[in-house]
Amino acid sequence: MPSIKFLAALVALLTLGLQGAAAASLETAVAAYHTLPREYRLDGIVEAVNRTTVSAQTQGQVQEIYYDVDDFVEKNALIARLKDTEHRARVSQAAADLKSATARLQQAKDEHERVSGLYRKKNVSDSAMDKATADLASAQAAFESATARLEQAQEQLAYTEIRAPYSGIVTHRHVELGEIASPGSPVMSGISLDELRVKVDVPQSIIPAIRQRDSEGVPGARVRVYLPGDGVIETGNITVFPYADLGSNTFKVRIELPTQPGDKLRALFPGMFVKTGFIVGDKSELTVPRRAVVHRSEVTGVYVVGTEGRVSFRQVRLGRTLPDAYAILSGLTAGERVALDPIAAGVTLKEQVLARMEEVGEGGHD
Score class of each variant (00 low, 15 high):
247 G>C: 00
121 K>Y: 06
93 Q>L: 12
223 V>H: 03
53 T>I: 11
102 T>C: 03
350 K>E: 12
262 G>M: 01
300 T>P: 09
281 G>H: 11
339 A>E: 06
4 I>N: 09
95 A>V: 02
278 F>K: 05
97 D>S: 15
272 M>P: 12
224 R>E: 13
214 D>P: 10
223 V>S: 03
107 Q>H: 12
222 R>Y: 09
80 A>I: 04
150 L>Q: 14
103 A>F: 13
266 R>N: 02
159 Y>M: 09
34 H>K: 10
356 R>W: 09
262 G>A: 01
270 P>L: 02
151 E>W: 03
219 P>A: 04
278 F>H: 10
23 A>Q: 07
272 M>F: 08
136 L>S: 07
118 L>G: 09
331 G>M: 04
210 I>S: 02
22 A>Y: 03
12 A>K: 02
196 L>R: 06
66 Y>H: 12
176 E>N: 15
233 I>Y: 08
358 E>I: 12
318 L>A: 06
253 V>H: 01
140 Q>N: 11
30 V>Y: 03
306 G>Q: 09
70 D>V: 08
307 T>I: 11
297 S>D: 15
215 S>M: 11
276 T>R: 06
157 L>Q: 07
260 Q>L: 10
43 D>H: 00
261 P>M: 00
42 L>D: 08
173 R>M: 08
94 A>E: 06
50 N>V: 01
147 T>I: 00
297 S>T: 11
189 S>P: 14
313 F>K: 00
85 T>Q: 12
326 Y>G: 00
314 R>P: 00
202 V>K: 01
351 E>P: 00
282 D>P: 00
304 V>T: 12
158 A>G: 08
206 I>E: 02
131 K>D: 13
285 E>I: 07
11 V>W: 05
86 E>S: 13
332 L>A: 02
177 L>H: 09
293 V>F: 07
318 L>C: 08
83 K>F: 08
6 F>T: 12
170 V>M: 14
241 F>C: 00
309 G>R: 10
285 E>P: 09
183 P>R: 12
66 Y>S: 08
143 F>P: 00
64 E>Q: 15
319 G>A: 02
286 L>D: 04
178 G>W: 09
345 A>M: 02
102 T>H: 09
278 F>N: 06
30 V>I: 14
316 V>R: 01
128 A>E: 15
